[in-house]
């Protein structure tokens, strides 16, 4: 997308994890983005200690309360503490957001490497299916599959994984095809290395950069998609909280209080924005050609 500022003092040997991390933290936008992500991950991990109330405990004595010292973001139509639901909701949103693109990268990456390395009929078949699935926007594909499959944690993970797999497969395939022509791969083949070893040692490390960039950018998409599916009622199922279904329940109670909607939506926006900034910076460092 865009780098907020040009990376200052690019280190001599880009590519290793440490140098990438240093370059990100070097610039203000990167530092802020990393801090936001770390903060939210900590909130998700420490939810039981941070949440002032039980996110599921209902109290009919304090329904639709406006923010007070006891309930910093007020309560919802069941008298549940909104802040606590928000804190617990970060768990579902973040776990699904990180898990599904990772699974998709593994599955799609494997398919793409196999198709790109071996070519032939496998390649044609994989490319064909990728092209067909890529015709659909991820959200629509996710909605269509979730429509048939229904909600729930693992279903959402499965749906998002299917939605993201073709993209990873396409990138992995293209990168593998270009890496395969490199002299070091030819040398490895000439040296008589077995094919699986060539793929693991010489191909995979050299196509990792674009995959990692995509993984970061799509983690942001996955968090937004999970929220959308939960909002539509086909993601995380109540009473479990997720940022999307907090907004869904808030909308049916909009005449009483709008705090749940405003807070949950802000959380989604901030996290998604931080992760996409990170993705952009990483793309600028690792994969300058795409830009």
């Amino acid at each position: 997308m865009m780098s907020i500022s040009e990376p200052a003092n690019l280190p001599d040997a880009p590519g290793t994890t440490a140098t990438v991390l240093r370059t990100i933290l070097w610039q203000p936008a990167g530092l802020i983005a990393v801090s936001v992500v770390v903060l939210f991950v900590l909130i998700a991990i420490l939810a039981p200690w941070l949440a002032p109330h039980d996110p599921l405990s209902q109290s009919f004595l304090s329904i639709n309360a406006q923010p007070t010292a006891d309930h910093l973001l007020g309560t919802d139509q069941f008298g549940r503490d909104v802040l606590s639901r928000l804190i617990y909701g970060s768990r579902n949103s973040l776990i699904i957001g990180f898990l599904s693109p990772t699974l998709a990268a593994l599955i799609g990456g494997t398919l793409g490497v196999i198709a790109g390395y071996f070519g032939g009929i496998t390649d044609r078949l994989v490319t064909r299916v990728i092209d067909m699935l890529m015709a659909f926007p991820e959200l629509l594909l996710a909605i269509l599959i979730a429509a048939a499959l229904g909600g729930g944690f693992w279903n959402v993970v499965a749906v998002l994984t299917v939605a993201f797999t073709p993209g990873f497969a396409r990138v992995a395939r293209a990168s593998t095809m270009s890496v395969k022509e490199e002299p070091y791969v030819e040398a490895a083949i000439a040296a008589g290395l077995r094919t699986p070893i060539i793929i693991v040692r010489h191909v995979v490390p050299n196509i990792a950069a674009p995959i990692v960039v995509l993984l970061t950018l799509w983690t942001a998409s996955a968090i937004r998609l999970e929220a959308t599916l939960s909002f539509l009622g086909i993601g995380t199922q109540p009473p479990a909280a997720s940022w999307g279904n907090i907004i869904r329940e808030g909308l049916s109670n909009i005449f009483a209080t709008s705090w749940p909607i405003l807070a949950a939506g802000l959380a989604i926006t901030v996290v998604v924005m931080a992760i996409s900034i990170l993705g952009d910076i990483m793309r600028d460092i690792l994969d300058p050609e795409i830009n």
């Binding site: 997308m1 937004r224 929220a227 709008s258 909607i261 939506g265 926006t269 924005m273």
Partner: peptide, 26 residues
């Protein structure tokens, strides 16, 4: 414009819709 598009990409449309609904309709 860069800032606008950064925010525009991050805000889920159902959240933006809910804000517009709360402010301009409600």
């Amino acid at each position: 414009f860069r800032l606008f598009s950064l925010v525009g990409y991050a805000v889920p449309d159902f959240y933006l819709g809910a804000i517009l609904l709360i402010v301009f309709a409600l």
